[in-house]
Amino acid sequence: MTKVIVVTSGKGGVGKTTSSSSFASGLALRGHKTAVIDFDVGLRNLDLIMGCERRVVYDFVNVINGESTLKQALIKDKHCDNLFVLPASQTRDKDALDTASVGRVINELRDSFDYIVCDSPAGIEKGALMALYYADEALIVTNPEVSSVRDSDRILGILAAKSKRAEDGAEPIKEHLLITRYSPRRAAAGEMLSVTDVQEILSIPLLGVIPETEAVLQASNAGVPVIHDIESNAGQAYRDVVARFLGEDVPMRFLTADRKGFFSRLFGA
């Protein structure tokens, strides 16, 4: 049974595309056939982060308009065999999407994929609504700051009201909280919301915490999802997230500041 997972946040710049690319790659690395769709029509980024921008010939909108087949538009990922990218169009806007056509594409993908990851655009308008409409599960990407948490709360309300599952009165979308750009040191200093704060406000289960690292930016610029960087905390954290998503019991990491103070190092606390 294919699962459709939307990666969404409401707010922009919190790490939706970074998370989509690493999460989809992680599922593929674990042997699952995975497709990742860029719903950010007009501002496509996923192909850049996945390092396949130069291979885009046909895109999501072409498929919707019947100008190409799904097979022609899907780009095979460089790094994992099981992963395919359906890029967004850069020259159209979100009005090119509608529920019927998106549903048709998703249904076609269901035939050959285990997981379909929908990378949502920011906001709560058409593109975001289209990305979440067919979702079975949702990754709510949140930064530990009030505006991001507020927007995530808003998008959770929309998931519960405007998705297909909500309209059909089916079992609600399974929600997962993914906190990104987390700095344990700043949270401890009270400059950032803590994981507990965020969880308390959103009251949904925590899937993982991705620490703020330079590796993420470097990976994005290099076009290699950060999950492939096993050395980095973020890469490891994304691997943990995928494992937890697949039902494994993996303890949370990177929640506390690893650089110990002078005295604690001295006394070995």
């Binding site: 709560i124 507020r150 927007d151 709360d153 808003r154 959770l156 309300g157 929309i158 519960a160 009201a161 009251s203």
Partner: peptide, 8 residues
């Protein structure tokens, strides 16, 4: 029974 979220 569900949380009432921002905008609801």
């Amino acid at each position: 029974r569900q949380p009432v979220r921002s905008g609801q």
